[in-house]
Amino acid sequence: MTFALTIGPGYYLALSAMLFVIGSIGLLVRRNPLIMFMCIELMLNAANLAFVSFGKDMGDLGGQVSVLFVLVVAAAEVVIGLAIVVAVMRRRPKASVDEVSVLRG
């Protein structure tokens, strides 16, 4: 059984769009700050997939280099965000993101 279907960049972009949408829905619906961070990771990965797909389509290595930078920024963001979550949760263990509007730790 052979597939004559060739996978163009449109398929990857559609998958990337779906992944981004799922991530944004999670960001809107969930209230747990950790899950919201994971949804941000999903959206960043969707962007990464689009970067690499476009890069291959255009024959430019810049897409892959951009993904490296996005990776670094994502790591820094997760580190800082989780540190803030830990600092807030230590003060009030029951807090959800709606109650943490005081920014007082």
């Binding site: 769009a17 949408v21 829905i25 809107l28």
Partner: peptide, 22 residues
């Protein structure tokens, strides 16, 4: 409802991008 609207909007935009790229 806004999230549902965002889903539809992003899917439409994604489809348009896919078609344009193809």
């Amino acid at each position: 409802h806004l999230a549902l609207l965002a889903l539809v909007g992003f899917l439409v935009i994604g489809t348009l991008i896919g078609i344009a790229t193809a």
